[in-house]
């Protein structure tokens, strides 16, 4: 398979307090057509920023270096009509649908405006497709919903509208930025199932951003774990879940609540997550919180090395292999 998306040494700096601070410190990613990749990490680890960098939605004043290629074409330098054409190939589903839809426009307008404006469809065709897609995301009375305003729909319903809308332009890549985080648990499962099903049906590639490692592993072919603006481990979801190679991945897996084991207290990772611009230069960013930290971890920043079909960013990977715990099977 040929790579749909290739990211090489992506560095993004944002102006914070007058200085440019790095929020992404060298991201390398490769995504094949139709593949789903999970991007997991704590708040501020840079997962959303990665998606925003791909879709060129960075805050004003952001500075980008490195390269992002979509279908072989560099996208970091696209402008004007070329940028708009690229963006039609990539759809985004946001965490909070309510704030991402113009509150004074009807659902039908929201869904059809872009494709009509691009001239790819007539109003009638667009409306028919919108009704079909609303049905596909299991919204009842789709025809009637087109005339509703966003405030008349619940959060879960609105997120399904957002997903349907993301599919309107037949994109090839879907960037789903915590699409279920703002929803309640039962709705989450339903929305996730719909998203997963529609993506598979359409052979759509997806970058799924979440802080829920297990959820990412469940719906994605591969999963990347981010920490302080870097990818610390990437591998097949199965491998990540059962055989983590990075102490951070293992710590994340162990800190989730379980119903099959009685625990007095949830395991937590000690310390605070580091924002990427606080990360030390010549050391592992996770060293301060890592139970396995050794001298080697604070004297040199570990590179991302290929291991077991994936890659991990840990100086002690050879010593720790096999000792870290994942999800028991």
């Amino acid at each position: 398979m040929s790579a749909l998306l290739e990211i090489d040494d992506l560095v993004v700096r944002l102006p914070v307090g007058g200085a440019l601070r790095p929020v992404l410190r060298g991201i390398d990613l490769r995504l094949d057509a139709g593949e789903a990749l999970g991007l997991v990490g704590e708040s501020g680890s840079g997962k959303s920023m990665t998606a925003r960098a791909i879709d060129r939605l960075l805050p004003r004043g952001a500075e980008t270096s490195g390269s992002i290629r979509f279908d072989g074409d560099e996208v970091t330098t696209l402008r004007g009509a070329d940028l708009r054409r690229f963006r039609r190939e990539v759809s985004m589903v946001f965490q909070d649908p309510r704030s991402h839809i113009n509150p004074v426009r009807r659902i039908g307008d929201f869904m059809t405006e872009a494709v009509i404006a691009h001239g790819t469809m007539s109003r009638r065709e667009a409306t028919a497709l919108a009704i079909e897609l609303l049905g596909a995301v299991r919204i009842t009375n789709p025809t009637e919903r087109l005339h509703r305003f966003p405030h008349e729909l619940s959060g879960g319903m609105l997120q399904r509208v957002m997903i349907a809308s993301a599919l309107m332009g037949s994109p090839r890549l879907l960037l789903a930025d915590e699409p279920t985080t703002a929803l309640d648990v039962t709705t989450q499962a339903e929305v996730m199932a719909i998203l997963d099903e529609l993506r598979r049906e359409r052979g759509l590639a997806m970058i799924f951003i979440t802080h829920d490692l297990e959820l990412a592993a469940a719906v994605c072919d591969r999963t990347a774990v981010m920490y302080a603006g870097q990818i610390v481990e990437i591998n097949t979801s199965r491998h990540i879940e059962h055989d983590p190679l990075h102490p951070y991945t293992s710590a994340l897996l162990r800190s989730r609540p379980r119903i099959d084991v009685t625990m007095t207290r949830l395991e937590a990772i000690p310390g605070q997550p580091l924002s990427s611009f606080e990360a030390p230069d010549g050391a592992c960013a996770f060293a301060g919180r890592c139970p396995h930290a050794a001298d080697a971890c604070v004297t040199a920043a570990p590179p991302l090395v290929d291991v077991d079909g994936g890659a991990t960013r840990c100086s002690r990977v050879d010593e720790l292999r096999g000792t870290l715990h994942g999800v028991d099977t």
Partner: peptide, 10 residues
């Protein structure tokens, strides 16, 4: 955010 959402729709 809704303006950004429109932008990414191209």
């Amino acid at each position: 955010p809704y303006i950004a959402a429109l932008e990414v729709q191209g």
